[in-house]
Design a protein around this nucleic acid. Sequence first.
DNA 1: ACAATACGTCAGCTTTGTTGACATTCCAAG
DNA 2: CTTGGAATGTCAACAAAGCTGACGTATTGT
Lengths: 165, 165
Amino acid sequence: MPDTQGGESLLFLTDEQLRQGIEAMFFAYRGFTADPDRILATMAYGRAHHRAIHFIARRPGTTVNNLLGILGVTKQSLNRVLRTLVEDGLVDSRVGTSDKRERHLYLTEDGAALERKLSDAQRARMRAAYRTAGPEAVAGFRKVLEAMMDPDLRRKYYAIREEDS
Amino acid sequence: MPDTQGGESLLFLTDEQLRQGIEAMFFAYRGFTADPDRILATMAYGRAHHRAIHFIARRPGTTVNNLLGILGVTKQSLNRVLRTLVEDGLVDSRVGTSDKRERHLYLTEDGAALERKLSDAQRARMRAAYRTAGPEAVAGFRKVLEAMMDPDLRRKYYAIREEDS
DNA sequence: ACAATACGTCAGCTTTGTTGACATTCCAAG
DNA sequence: CTTGGAATGTCAACAAAGCTGACGTATTGT
Protein backbone atom coordinates (compact mmCIF):
# COMPACT_ATOMS: atom_id res chain seq x y z
CA MET A 1 0.00 0.00 0.00
CA PRO A 2 1.38 3.40 -0.99
CA ASP A 3 2.17 5.52 1.99
CA THR A 4 1.14 8.98 0.97
CA GLN A 5 1.94 10.36 4.38
CA GLY A 6 3.31 13.80 3.65
CA GLY A 7 4.09 14.42 7.27
CA GLU A 8 4.23 18.17 6.86
CA SER A 9 1.09 20.20 7.15
CA LEU A 10 1.31 21.58 3.67
CA LEU A 11 1.50 18.31 1.84
CA PHE A 12 -0.84 16.90 4.36
CA LEU A 13 -3.90 18.80 3.26
CA THR A 14 -3.65 18.24 -0.44
CA ASP A 15 -6.86 17.48 -2.24
CA GLU A 16 -5.55 14.00 -2.85
CA GLN A 17 -5.14 13.38 0.87
CA LEU A 18 -8.60 14.70 1.57
CA ARG A 19 -10.06 12.64 -1.23
CA GLN A 20 -8.53 9.51 0.23
CA GLY A 21 -10.07 10.37 3.58
CA ILE A 22 -13.45 10.78 1.91
CA GLU A 23 -13.16 7.42 0.21
CA ALA A 24 -11.98 5.80 3.40
CA MET A 25 -15.11 7.06 5.13
CA PHE A 26 -17.25 5.71 2.32
CA PHE A 27 -15.75 2.23 2.31
CA ALA A 28 -15.43 2.00 6.06
CA TYR A 29 -19.04 2.94 6.65
CA ARG A 30 -20.06 0.07 4.45
CA GLY A 31 -18.13 -2.28 6.68
CA PHE A 32 -19.48 -0.57 9.74
CA THR A 33 -23.08 -1.39 8.84
CA ALA A 34 -22.46 -4.70 7.06
CA ASP A 35 -22.79 -7.07 10.00
CA PRO A 36 -25.99 -5.67 11.54
CA ASP A 37 -27.44 -5.38 8.03
CA ARG A 38 -26.85 -9.05 7.45
CA ILE A 39 -28.68 -9.94 10.65
CA LEU A 40 -31.53 -7.54 10.00
CA ALA A 41 -32.01 -8.82 6.46
CA THR A 42 -33.18 -12.15 7.87
CA MET A 43 -35.99 -10.35 9.67
CA ALA A 44 -38.46 -7.72 8.53
CA TYR A 45 -36.22 -4.97 9.87
CA GLY A 46 -33.76 -2.51 8.43
CA ARG A 47 -31.11 -0.07 9.44
CA ALA A 48 -33.67 2.39 10.73
CA HIS A 49 -34.87 -0.15 13.29
CA HIS A 50 -31.34 -0.78 14.36
CA ARG A 51 -30.70 2.89 15.01
CA ALA A 52 -33.85 3.25 17.07
CA ILE A 53 -33.06 0.13 19.07
CA HIS A 54 -29.52 1.25 19.65
CA PHE A 55 -30.41 4.60 21.16
CA ILE A 56 -33.31 3.23 23.19
CA ALA A 57 -30.90 0.70 24.64
CA ARG A 58 -28.40 3.42 25.31
CA ARG A 59 -30.90 5.73 26.99
CA PRO A 60 -33.81 3.69 28.32
CA GLY A 61 -36.82 5.89 28.96
CA THR A 62 -35.86 8.40 26.31
CA THR A 63 -38.78 10.26 24.80
CA VAL A 64 -39.87 10.16 21.18
CA ASN A 65 -38.94 13.80 20.74
CA ASN A 66 -35.46 13.24 22.09
CA LEU A 67 -34.97 10.28 19.78
CA LEU A 68 -36.12 12.40 16.85
CA GLY A 69 -33.41 14.91 17.62
CA ILE A 70 -30.75 12.26 17.79
CA LEU A 71 -31.74 10.37 14.66
CA GLY A 72 -32.51 13.44 12.60
CA VAL A 73 -35.60 12.09 10.86
CA THR A 74 -39.20 13.20 10.82
CA LYS A 75 -41.64 11.94 13.41
CA GLN A 76 -43.61 10.20 10.66
CA SER A 77 -40.57 8.24 9.62
CA LEU A 78 -39.62 7.35 13.16
CA ASN A 79 -43.19 6.52 14.04
CA ARG A 80 -43.41 3.92 11.32
CA VAL A 81 -40.35 2.19 12.70
CA LEU A 82 -41.39 2.53 16.32
CA ARG A 83 -44.87 1.25 15.62
CA THR A 84 -43.61 -2.02 14.19
CA LEU A 85 -41.19 -2.44 17.07
CA VAL A 86 -43.95 -1.90 19.64
CA GLU A 87 -46.34 -4.18 17.74
CA ASP A 88 -43.69 -6.88 17.60
CA GLY A 89 -43.08 -6.57 21.33
CA LEU A 90 -39.50 -5.34 21.11
CA VAL A 91 -40.12 -1.86 22.45
CA ASP A 92 -42.32 -0.70 25.29
CA SER A 93 -43.85 2.77 24.99
CA ARG A 94 -44.98 4.15 28.34
CA VAL A 95 -46.90 7.33 28.98
CA GLY A 96 -44.83 9.82 30.97
CA THR A 97 -45.52 10.28 34.66
CA SER A 98 -44.66 13.94 35.11
CA ASP A 99 -45.70 14.94 31.60
CA LYS A 100 -48.34 12.65 30.24
CA ARG A 101 -47.89 13.90 26.69
CA GLU A 102 -44.52 12.24 26.48
CA ARG A 103 -43.91 8.60 25.67
CA HIS A 104 -40.92 6.98 27.29
CA LEU A 105 -39.33 4.17 25.34
CA TYR A 106 -37.86 0.97 26.73
CA LEU A 107 -36.66 -2.27 25.23
CA THR A 108 -38.52 -5.41 26.22
CA GLU A 109 -36.57 -8.57 26.89
CA ASP A 110 -36.94 -9.56 23.26
CA GLY A 111 -35.86 -6.10 22.20
CA ALA A 112 -32.82 -6.25 24.43
CA ALA A 113 -31.96 -9.66 23.01
CA LEU A 114 -32.00 -8.32 19.46
CA GLU A 115 -30.06 -5.27 20.51
CA ARG A 116 -27.39 -7.46 22.00
CA LYS A 117 -27.19 -9.55 18.87
CA LEU A 118 -26.78 -6.52 16.62
CA SER A 119 -24.49 -4.74 18.99
CA ASP A 120 -22.26 -7.76 19.46
CA ALA A 121 -21.76 -8.06 15.74
CA GLN A 122 -20.98 -4.40 15.29
CA ARG A 123 -18.72 -4.23 18.31
CA ALA A 124 -16.81 -7.28 17.16
CA ARG A 125 -15.81 -5.49 14.00
CA MET A 126 -15.02 -2.33 15.90
CA ARG A 127 -12.92 -4.26 18.38
CA ALA A 128 -10.98 -5.98 15.62
CA ALA A 129 -10.34 -2.66 13.91
CA TYR A 130 -9.25 -1.06 17.17
CA ARG A 131 -6.91 -3.93 17.91
CA THR A 132 -5.38 -3.80 14.47
CA ALA A 133 -4.92 -0.06 14.52
CA GLY A 134 -3.78 0.33 18.10
CA PRO A 135 -4.72 2.72 20.93
CA GLU A 136 -3.06 5.80 19.51
CA ALA A 137 -4.77 5.38 16.18
CA VAL A 138 -8.09 5.00 17.95
CA ALA A 139 -7.61 8.27 19.78
CA GLY A 140 -6.95 9.98 16.47
CA PHE A 141 -9.88 8.25 14.88
CA ARG A 142 -12.22 9.58 17.51
CA LYS A 143 -10.74 13.02 17.34
CA VAL A 144 -11.24 13.37 13.60
CA LEU A 145 -14.76 11.97 13.74
CA GLU A 146 -15.75 14.41 16.44
CA ALA A 147 -14.33 17.29 14.44
CA MET A 148 -16.31 16.15 11.43
CA MET A 149 -19.71 16.29 13.16
CA ASP A 150 -22.12 19.16 12.84
CA PRO A 151 -21.91 21.20 16.06
CA ASP A 152 -25.50 20.38 16.85
CA LEU A 153 -24.89 16.65 16.56
CA ARG A 154 -21.61 16.90 18.40
CA ARG A 155 -23.46 18.30 21.38
CA LYS A 156 -25.87 15.40 21.24
CA TYR A 157 -23.01 12.96 20.93
CA TYR A 158 -21.42 14.34 24.07
CA ALA A 159 -24.77 14.62 25.84
CA ILE A 160 -25.50 10.93 25.41
CA ARG A 161 -22.21 10.04 27.05
CA GLU A 162 -22.53 12.54 29.85
CA GLU A 163 -25.96 11.46 30.95
CA ASP A 164 -24.33 8.70 32.93
CA SER A 165 -23.30 11.06 35.71
CA MET B 1 3.41 -4.35 23.10
CA PRO B 2 4.96 -3.84 26.53
CA ASP B 3 3.12 -4.64 29.72
CA THR B 4 2.20 -1.02 30.33
CA GLN B 5 0.02 -1.18 27.25
CA GLY B 6 -1.50 -4.47 28.23
CA GLY B 7 -3.60 -3.19 31.10
CA GLU B 8 -4.62 -0.19 29.09
CA SER B 9 -5.69 -2.31 26.19
CA LEU B 10 -8.10 -4.16 28.39
CA LEU B 11 -9.83 -1.03 29.61
CA PHE B 12 -9.55 0.39 26.18
CA LEU B 13 -11.72 -2.19 24.53
CA THR B 14 -14.61 -2.02 26.94
CA ASP B 15 -18.03 -2.22 25.40
CA GLU B 16 -18.55 1.38 26.40
CA GLN B 17 -15.50 2.49 24.45
CA LEU B 18 -16.61 0.53 21.43
CA ARG B 19 -20.12 1.89 21.72
CA GLN B 20 -18.78 5.41 21.69
CA GLY B 21 -16.82 4.63 18.57
CA ILE B 22 -19.96 3.30 16.94
CA GLU B 23 -21.91 6.41 17.82
CA ALA B 24 -19.05 8.61 16.65
CA MET B 25 -19.19 6.88 13.27
CA PHE B 26 -22.92 7.40 13.10
CA PHE B 27 -22.86 11.10 13.92
CA ALA B 28 -19.76 11.83 11.89
CA TYR B 29 -21.14 10.18 8.78
CA ARG B 30 -24.11 12.51 8.97
CA GLY B 31 -21.77 15.46 8.90
CA PHE B 32 -19.72 13.82 6.18
CA THR B 33 -22.67 13.73 3.79
CA ALA B 34 -24.45 16.87 4.97
CA ASP B 35 -22.84 19.43 2.66
CA PRO B 36 -23.15 17.52 -0.62
CA ASP B 37 -26.69 16.53 0.36
CA ARG B 38 -27.62 20.17 0.77
CA ILE B 39 -26.32 20.98 -2.70
CA LEU B 40 -27.92 17.94 -4.30
CA ALA B 41 -31.27 18.69 -2.71
CA THR B 42 -31.55 21.81 -4.85
CA MET B 43 -31.34 19.65 -7.97
CA ALA B 44 -33.06 16.45 -8.95
CA TYR B 45 -30.14 14.41 -7.63
CA GLY B 46 -29.34 12.42 -4.54
CA ARG B 47 -26.48 10.75 -2.78
CA ALA B 48 -26.38 7.94 -5.31
CA HIS B 49 -25.62 10.41 -8.07
CA HIS B 50 -22.88 11.93 -6.00
CA ARG B 51 -21.20 8.58 -5.47
CA ALA B 52 -21.29 7.75 -9.16
CA ILE B 53 -19.94 11.16 -10.10
CA HIS B 54 -17.21 10.92 -7.53
CA PHE B 55 -15.80 7.64 -8.74
CA ILE B 56 -16.15 8.54 -12.41
CA ALA B 57 -14.19 11.69 -11.69
CA ARG B 58 -11.63 9.68 -9.81
CA ARG B 59 -11.21 7.07 -12.52
CA PRO B 60 -12.26 8.51 -15.88
CA GLY B 61 -13.00 5.75 -18.34
CA THR B 62 -14.00 3.26 -15.69
CA THR B 63 -16.48 0.64 -16.85
CA VAL B 64 -19.97 0.15 -15.55
CA ASN B 65 -19.03 -3.20 -14.12
CA ASN B 66 -16.08 -1.76 -12.27
CA LEU B 67 -18.26 0.97 -10.84
CA LEU B 68 -20.78 -1.65 -9.72
CA GLY B 69 -18.08 -3.41 -7.76
CA ILE B 70 -17.00 -0.21 -6.07
CA LEU B 71 -20.46 1.08 -5.20
CA GLY B 72 -21.88 -2.28 -4.22
CA VAL B 73 -25.31 -1.86 -5.75
CA THR B 74 -27.17 -3.75 -8.46
CA LYS B 75 -26.73 -2.80 -12.07
CA GLN B 76 -30.40 -1.84 -12.26
CA SER B 77 -29.98 0.61 -9.43
CA LEU B 78 -26.81 2.09 -10.86
CA ASN B 79 -28.26 2.15 -14.35
CA ARG B 80 -31.14 4.35 -13.26
CA VAL B 81 -28.68 6.84 -11.81
CA LEU B 82 -26.33 6.72 -14.78
CA ARG B 83 -29.16 7.09 -17.25
CA THR B 84 -30.30 10.37 -15.75
CA LEU B 85 -26.73 11.63 -15.60
CA VAL B 86 -26.16 10.77 -19.26
CA GLU B 87 -29.51 12.24 -20.29
CA ASP B 88 -28.71 15.43 -18.43
CA GLY B 89 -25.35 15.65 -20.14
CA LEU B 90 -23.21 15.23 -17.04
CA VAL B 91 -21.75 11.85 -17.93
CA ASP B 92 -20.51 10.52 -21.22
CA SER B 93 -20.85 6.79 -21.84
CA ARG B 94 -18.57 5.54 -24.57
CA VAL B 95 -18.51 2.09 -26.07
CA GLY B 96 -15.25 0.32 -25.37
CA THR B 97 -12.65 0.11 -28.12
CA SER B 98 -11.00 -3.20 -27.26
CA ASP B 99 -14.17 -4.72 -25.82
CA LYS B 100 -17.23 -3.15 -27.31
CA ARG B 101 -19.54 -4.60 -24.68
CA GLU B 102 -18.06 -2.38 -22.10
CA ARG B 103 -19.09 1.22 -21.57
CA HIS B 104 -16.46 3.64 -20.41
CA LEU B 105 -17.69 6.51 -18.31
CA TYR B 106 -16.44 10.08 -18.38
CA LEU B 107 -17.66 13.33 -16.93
CA THR B 108 -18.61 16.04 -19.36
CA GLU B 109 -17.66 19.64 -18.58
CA ASP B 110 -20.96 20.14 -16.81
CA GLY B 111 -20.43 16.90 -14.91
CA ALA B 112 -16.96 17.96 -13.88
CA ALA B 113 -18.34 21.30 -12.71
CA LEU B 114 -20.88 19.63 -10.47
CA GLU B 115 -18.27 17.21 -9.22
CA ARG B 116 -16.05 20.10 -8.24
CA LYS B 117 -18.87 21.83 -6.45
CA LEU B 118 -19.76 18.73 -4.43
CA SER B 119 -16.18 17.77 -3.84
CA ASP B 120 -15.21 21.24 -2.69
CA ALA B 121 -17.94 21.23 -0.10
CA GLN B 122 -17.03 17.82 1.21
CA ARG B 123 -13.32 18.49 1.22
CA ALA B 124 -13.83 21.75 3.07
CA ARG B 125 -15.34 19.89 5.97
CA MET B 126 -12.69 17.21 5.82
CA ARG B 127 -9.96 19.82 5.75
CA ALA B 128 -11.43 21.60 8.76
CA ALA B 129 -11.69 18.34 10.67
CA TYR B 130 -8.11 17.39 9.75
CA ARG B 131 -6.83 20.78 10.84
CA THR B 132 -8.66 20.60 14.12
CA ALA B 133 -7.54 17.08 14.89
CA GLY B 134 -3.95 17.35 13.69
CA PRO B 135 -1.74 15.13 11.52
CA GLU B 136 -1.23 12.36 14.05
CA ALA B 137 -4.94 12.04 14.63
CA VAL B 138 -5.50 11.85 10.89
CA ALA B 139 -3.04 9.00 10.55
CA GLY B 140 -4.93 7.13 13.26
CA PHE B 141 -8.25 7.97 11.68
CA ARG B 142 -7.18 6.47 8.39
CA LYS B 143 -5.70 3.44 10.07
CA VAL B 144 -8.88 2.56 11.94
CA LEU B 145 -11.09 3.17 8.91
CA GLU B 146 -8.97 0.87 6.80
CA ALA B 147 -9.10 -1.81 9.45
CA MET B 148 -12.87 -1.48 9.54
CA MET B 149 -13.40 -2.19 5.84
CA ASP B 150 -14.39 -5.53 4.44
CA PRO B 151 -11.29 -7.12 2.91
CA ASP B 152 -12.90 -7.01 -0.50
CA LEU B 153 -13.59 -3.29 -0.27
CA ARG B 154 -10.23 -2.60 1.27
CA ARG B 155 -8.62 -4.05 -1.82
CA LYS B 156 -10.73 -1.79 -3.99
CA TYR B 157 -9.88 1.17 -1.82
CA TYR B 158 -6.18 0.54 -2.29
CA ALA B 159 -6.63 -0.27 -5.96
CA ILE B 160 -8.20 3.09 -6.72
CA ARG B 161 -5.22 4.85 -5.19
CA GLU B 162 -2.65 2.69 -6.87
CA GLU B 163 -3.97 3.12 -10.38
CA ASP B 164 -2.16 6.44 -10.53
CA SER B 165 1.15 4.81 -11.25
C1' DA C 1 -59.56 30.20 28.37
C1' DC C 2 -56.18 29.56 25.06
C1' DA C 3 -51.81 28.73 22.79
C1' DA C 4 -48.19 25.64 22.53
C1' DT C 5 -46.26 21.03 22.95
C1' DA C 6 -45.88 15.96 22.28
C1' DC C 7 -47.46 12.42 19.91
C1' DG C 8 -49.92 9.69 16.48
C1' DT C 9 -51.77 9.02 11.97
C1' DC C 10 -53.54 9.40 7.12
C1' DA C 11 -52.22 10.28 2.45
C1' DG C 12 -49.08 10.86 -1.08
C1' DC C 13 -44.57 11.35 -2.99
C1' DT C 14 -39.29 10.55 -3.76
C1' DT C 15 -34.94 8.23 -3.72
C1' DT C 16 -32.59 4.27 -3.80
C1' DG C 17 -32.18 -0.12 -3.09
C1' DT C 18 -33.91 -5.13 -4.34
C1' DT C 19 -35.50 -9.61 -7.73
C1' DG C 20 -36.60 -11.64 -11.78
C1' DA C 21 -36.98 -11.95 -16.64
C1' DC C 22 -35.38 -11.05 -21.05
C1' DA C 23 -32.85 -8.93 -25.28
C1' DT C 24 -28.65 -7.50 -27.36
C1' DT C 25 -24.02 -7.49 -28.38
C1' DC C 26 -19.77 -9.39 -28.45
C1' DC C 27 -15.60 -12.33 -27.20
C1' DA C 28 -13.62 -16.62 -27.12
C1' DA C 29 -13.42 -21.54 -27.05
C1' DG C 30 -14.61 -25.66 -29.24
C1' DC D 1 -18.37 -21.10 -37.66
C1' DT D 2 -21.16 -21.92 -34.14
C1' DT D 3 -22.29 -21.45 -29.63
C1' DG D 4 -21.81 -20.48 -24.65
C1' DG D 5 -21.09 -17.07 -21.55
C1' DA D 6 -20.02 -12.32 -20.25
C1' DA D 7 -21.25 -7.41 -20.20
C1' DT D 8 -24.74 -4.39 -20.68
C1' DG D 9 -29.34 -2.43 -20.96
C1' DT D 10 -34.15 -2.47 -19.88
C1' DC D 11 -38.90 -3.62 -18.21
C1' DA D 12 -41.74 -4.55 -14.28
C1' DA D 13 -42.79 -4.93 -9.62
C1' DC D 14 -41.68 -4.14 -5.16
C1' DA D 15 -39.68 -2.56 -0.42
C1' DA D 16 -37.29 0.44 2.89
C1' DA D 17 -36.98 4.72 4.54
C1' DG D 18 -36.86 9.22 3.97
C1' DC D 19 -39.97 13.59 2.97
C1' DT D 20 -44.25 17.24 3.20
C1' DG D 21 -48.71 18.53 4.60
C1' DA D 22 -52.76 18.15 7.19
C1' DC D 23 -55.36 16.87 11.04
C1' DG D 24 -56.71 15.02 15.73
C1' DT D 25 -56.00 14.43 20.69
C1' DA D 26 -54.17 14.84 25.02
C1' DT D 27 -51.81 17.59 28.05
C1' DT D 28 -49.39 21.43 29.74
C1' DG D 29 -48.17 26.08 30.67
C1' DT D 30 -49.39 30.96 30.45
